[in-house]
Every structure is written in C-alpha cells, then in structure tokens.
C-alpha cells in the first residue's frame, strides 16, 4: 500500500514540476497545488499506513480493543493542508491582482520591478 501511495506521490510531483516549468503563472499555481498534494501524500506514506482503530479512548478512558492507528502524520497533514490552503488562496488572489494590473500572466514579461538594462 505504501508503495502505491509513494508512486502516486511521485507521479503528482513529476506532473507538478512539468506544470511549474511553464511561464504562465496560472499553470505554475496548479503545479504548486499538485506539488503540495504530492508532498502531503508522501508524509502520509512516510508515517506508515497502518490499519487500526481510531486513536480515541472509550468511556471512562477505556483503550480500544485493537491496535490504534498513528494519529500524528494525520495531524501534521491537517496542519499542512490548512496552511497550504491559506497560502494558495493568497497566491490565487495575487494572481487575479497581477492579471488586472498587467493584463497577462506571462512571468517572463513581468519586468516592472526589474526592468531590462537600457542605461549605458
């Protein structure tokens, strides 16, 4: 199972790199989204996919009968997803703003902050 998830994660990362190499900001963003999902999957796989009961205590603190699943990778993931969501939302808003400002999304043509050399 881990192998499968690892392969899927690798596939996502490969796809994302292809997308991110594009000069278009929108494609780059989609690549970034795929990349963070790929990494999230990698963390899940690195934490080992164990079948087990949810790590919750029963009434009066009774332990569940089976082995409990490791909750930490999922907690890490949840945090990472939330943060990734926030950052992605900001990046999306920035992209819209950039499109309004420049009229295009080609990063190679965004030269306002770093104009090409013209002075002798």
């Amino acid at each position: 199972m881990e192998t499968l998830v690892a392969c899927l994660s690798g596939f996502l990362v490969a796809t994302s790199i292809w997308l991110m190499l594009s000069g278009n900001l929108m494609r780059f963003l989609f690549g970034l989204l795929l990349l963070s999902n790929g990494v999230n999957l990698a963390i899940l796989a690195a934490g080992r996919l164990t079948p087990g009961a949810p790590p919750l205590l029963g009434a009066k603190g009774a332990l569940p009968p089976d082995t409990m699943a490791n909750a930490l990778p999922q907690a890490l993931l949840l945090t990472a997803i939330v943060i990734g969501f926030g950052l992605f939302a900001f990046a999306l808003a920035l992209t819209i703003r950039a499109y309004r400002t420049f009229g295009h999304l080609e990063v190679d043509r965004m030269r306002i902050a770093e104009p090409a050399e013209e002075r002798e």
Binding site: G86, A89, L92, A93, I96, R97, R100
Partner: peptide, 14 residues
C-alpha cells in the same frame, strides 16, 4: 472569519 474573508474577497474580485 478567515475562510469567509478569503472567499468573499475572491468572489468580489471575480
């Protein structure tokens, strides 16, 4: 609050 801020702001720019 954070989610609604984000979503409202994005919807308004569209």
């Amino acid at each position: 609050g954070a989610i609604l801020t984000l979503v409202f702001a994005l919807e308004e720019t569209l």
